Amino acid sequence: MDQNKKTILKNFSPVKILIPVLLGLGATVWLFIKDDRLNDLKGITEANIWWLLAAVLVLVIRDAGYMYRIRSLTDKFLSWRNSLDVIMLWEFASAITPSVVGGTAIATIILNKEGIPLGKSLAYVMFTAVLDNMFFIVAAPLVLLLTQGEVFPQFDLDPDYVNSLKMAFYISYSLIAIYTFIMIYALFVRPRAFKWLLLKVTSWGFLRRWRVSAFQHGNEIVWASQQLKGNSFNYWARAIISTVFVWSARYFLLNCLIAAFADVSFGEHMLIISRNLIFWIVMLVAITPGGAGIVEMAFPSFFASFLGRFSSIVVVLYRLITYYPYLLLGSVFLPKWVAKVFGRSGLKES
């Protein structure tokens, strides 16, 4: 079997879909049981239906923004239909892999099988990772400055918990920044020097076992760098603007859900967006697929102050809208896509 086909089918196996579902559902049930809040589920009838519909609309707009970005990055090589396949499968891959890993390796294969050369596929995936991370790197200090520390949830009875959240944020932010600046140097400044450094480091002692992987990764960086050279100002501007757009939409979706259950002022809307940014930077180092279980457990700590008894309901709705649909949609899109790019025998082989 084609090695790419093996990788795709292995990573999208039913077991890998079932694990995050069980983790997420388990954490959700525990949230309701531990505080005896099963009766709070009735609170769903008190929701403002227009804000709930707005949340769904924002989700659709966000995905349209992702489609526009990948189509723009590929210089419209991908049609809108193919862009939809790519984004749905990319989100599917992200949903069943740990947040710290993401779906980038699978995304490279997906783009390559859509007819984009491997070097360009690597370039587009690496570039989107840099764009997304740069959004976090630039936005986080801004919200910390504008909110003057209010962005972190406050717990009068447990200041140690607040400090642990702050520590998790600063560690996650530092790791993202270090990784991103290394990638920028490797992709846009001196890719061959980066490849030489990888080979040099893996020539020492026990690190030699990774020398072949380092050589391969170094080549990938050089290929990707070559593909990104020579693009126009408009190309870079579209990439940056679309990235800001999709992440802003991703964050504002939660504002819609919270506003469906609580009266939220303009200032509180800004604080929710800011706190959501900090929340997801912390969640980026989650070790479970799609942050399943961890997101559900940490959510009330960040947003219960806006929601009160509705916090458990909103976290369920939030995951139902932003996470579980991609597991379902991915399962629908995957067989059709595999049949398209590998042939009708693709799903029968093992």
Rank of each mutant, 00 (worst) to 15 (best):
A249R: 00
I273Y: 12
M167E: 06
Y185R: 11
G290Y: 01
S265N: 00
P289L: 11
H217Y: 15
K42H: 08
R238C: 06
P289C: 12
F155R: 07
K348V: 06
T104E: 15
S305E: 04
W204S: 03
Y179A: 15
L41T: 05
F194G: 01
L89Q: 06
L73Y: 03
N255M: 00
P153F: 02
H269M: 07
L18F: 13
K5L: 15
A64P: 04
A262Q: 10
V29K: 00
V285T: 14
P325L: 01
S311I: 13
N133M: 12
E46Q: 15
Q148H: 10
M1V: 13
L78Q: 12
I44N: 06
F215L: 05
S174G: 15
D160Q: 10
Y235F: 14
K229C: 08
G346M: 08
L254N: 05
M67I: 15
V222C: 04
F266C: 01
I182N: 02
G65W: 11
Y318E: 02
W80V: 12
A27P: 05
I176Y: 01
L165R: 01
S94Q: 10
A237P: 07
S345F: 02
L111P: 06
K336S: 12
G26E: 06
S265A: 02
N48S: 14
C256K: 02
P289G: 12
V314R: 04
E91F: 10
I184S: 00
L317T: 05
P98S: 11
T288V: 13
A129Y: 12
L198V: 02
A304Y: 09
I70H: 03
L197H: 06
T97A: 15
Y161E: 09
N163Y: 08
W280I: 10
Y185M: 05
I184F: 05
L142V: 14
K336M: 11
T104D: 14
L165C: 00
K166F: 02
V58E: 01
I61M: 15
V341R: 05
F245V: 14
C256L: 09
A262D: 04
Y326L: 04
L198E: 07
T45E: 07
Y324G: 02
S232E: 09
L334K: 11
L122V: 08
S164E: 08
L328G: 09
R344I: 01
A105T: 11
K229G: 05
N82M: 12
K195H: 10
L38S: 01
L307Q: 04
F77P: 00
L320M: 15
A64L: 14
A64Q: 03
S345W: 02
L53A: 14
G102V: 04
A93D: 04
D160W: 12
K16G: 14
T180D: 10
S311P: 01
F342C: 01
E91A: 11
F194L: 04
G24Q: 07
F302N: 05
A93L: 06
E268T: 07
M270L: 14
W247V: 03
Y235P: 10
D132H: 11
A298L: 15
M183K: 07
S242F: 03
Y324E: 05
A107E: 04
Y68E: 00
N48G: 13
A107M: 03
A27H: 09
Y68T: 11
S172M: 04
S172H: 07
E268K: 00
